[in-house]
Amino acid sequence: MPRVSIVIPVYNTSRFLEECLRSVLRQDFTDWQVILVDDGSTDGSGTICDQYAATDPRIEVLHQPNQGLSAARNNGLARAQGEFVLFLDSDDFWLRQDTLTTLLDAMDSHPKCDFIGFNWVYYFSKEKQRRWRDFGNYVPEVVSGEEALRSILRSGDTPMSACIKIIRRDFLIESKLSFIPGITSEDIPWFMRLLCHAKGCLFLHDYLYGYRQEVDGSITREYSQRRFHDLVFIIEDGLRLTDSQPSQGMREALLSFYATEYCILLSHMNVLTKEERQSMEPWMRKHQYLLRCDQSPKVRLANRAWRLTGLKGLELLLRLRNMLVRQ
C-alpha cells in the first residue's frame, strides 16, 4: 500500500499537465500513488496521462465522460489506497521538491490531526507570484475543527481549496466526505464538513502549492449567473449543516462563515437579469439576518454599513469594493 495517494482531475489542461506531473515526479519522497482522472478531455490531455502511466507504475489513469470536477475527485478518491490523500489540480503544481516529505513528517509528528493545511502562492508567471495569507499564524497548533474555523474567521479569509490539505484517508471514509457534483465552488461545502468532523487539525507555515492564475477558460475569472445560483444552493446547504451541529460554538461559527458568502452574493446581484433579481430579492431579505453573525472582520464592516444604509446601500458599497479590487 502506498503511503500517500494523489488525486489529479484532468480536463483540457494539456498546456500545464506535464509541469504538474513533473512536480510530483521530482519529489524526494517516492512511496506514492497518482490517480489521474481524465474527465473527458478533448485537447490531448488524456494521451499525456496515458504516456506518463506507461512509464511509471505508480501512476494510473481513469478515463471518464465529462462529469465535472466534483465527480472526478470523488471517482479518483474511490481508487485511493494510501494512508493519506492529497488533491492536486492539473494546471497547478507543487513548489518544492520536499513537499511530500514536509507534509508526511508533519502528519507523523501530529497523530491527532485528521488533516493538516498548508500555504499557497498565486502564480502568474516566473516573474510574478504572490503569497497568500499565512494561515499557520491563525491555526499553528492542533485544535478542533470548530476552533480552527473560529480562528480562520478572525483572519478575514478562508483556505477552502481541497488542494492545500493532506488528509487521513480513513478519516475521509469514516466521515463520508465527498464533493457535491454539478456545482461550482464545490470546495466550500466540502471544507465546512471537513471542519465539522475534524477532531484535530493545524496549518503549516510552509508555502508548498503553486496556484496558477489567469488560465484561459478558468471558471474563477468571471462571476456568472451559474456561480450566483450555485452559491445560493451552497448557503442553503450550509444552513442545514449548521442546524445539524450539536455544538453552539460551531453553529455560530458556521453562520458567521455563511454570512461572508451572503455578502459575496449581495455584491454580485448585478449579474442577474431583472426578472431573476426580482425573484431573488425576497430570499436576500429573508437571509439578511446573517449580517449579524459577524465573527469575520469583513462581515463586521458589512454589518455596520447595512445598519447605516440598508440592504441596497450595502449592495452598492460591496459592488464598488469589487470594482476597486479588480483595478
Rank of each mutant, 00 (worst) to 15 (best):
S224L: 05
L177D: 10
S70V: 00
S218A: 12
P189L: 12
S161H: 04
T47F: 14
L100H: 08
P2H: 14
Y138H: 03
E275D: 11
A72L: 10
P159Y: 15
I35K: 01
R300Y: 01
L177Q: 06
M269V: 05
A302R: 09
N322Q: 10
L95Y: 07
Q51M: 08
I6Y: 03
P181W: 14
Q129W: 00
W132F: 02
I48P: 01
E18C: 11
E214G: 03
P282M: 09
G182Q: 08
R307A: 10
N119Y: 05
N119A: 02
I6H: 04
R300W: 03
R133F: 03
G136C: 03
T220I: 08
F228Q: 05
M269K: 00
C163S: 14
R307H: 14
V121Q: 05
V34S: 04
K112G: 08
T260Y: 09
M280W: 07
T13H: 06
M284G: 00
D56R: 13
R292I: 04
S178K: 00
Q213V: 04
R321F: 10
S5L: 07
G68L: 08
R292M: 10
S279W: 11
L255F: 02
P297D: 13
D50H: 12
W132D: 10
L324Y: 06
R79I: 02
W132M: 02
A53K: 07
T260Q: 11
P189I: 15
A305Y: 03
P159N: 07
L69V: 11
S14M: 05
S70L: 01
R96I: 11
S23E: 00
K176M: 13
Y258C: 09
V7S: 08
L177G: 01
D56N: 15
C113F: 07
Y207V: 13
F16M: 12
M107V: 14
S178W: 12
L241K: 07
P246E: 09
F93A: 01
E127Y: 13
N303E: 03
R319L: 04
E83R: 03
G117D: 07
K274C: 09
A78H: 02
L69F: 11
S218I: 09
L272M: 05
D237P: 04
W94L: 07
D187W: 10
D294R: 14
F191N: 04
K298A: 12
V85R: 04
H110I: 12
L100K: 00
L265T: 05
Q278H: 10
E222P: 00
Y122P: 00
L88P: 03
V24D: 01
L290F: 12
V37Y: 01
V299L: 13
M269G: 03
T55F: 07
K199G: 15
D89G: 15
L149Y: 04
T260D: 06
T220R: 10
R221I: 07
D134N: 15
G156A: 04
L204W: 15
I48F: 10
A253V: 08
A72H: 08
I264G: 00
I219V: 13
A198T: 02
V34C: 11
D134I: 09
C20F: 13
Y207C: 12
E214H: 06
S178R: 09
C201I: 12
D206N: 10
F29C: 13
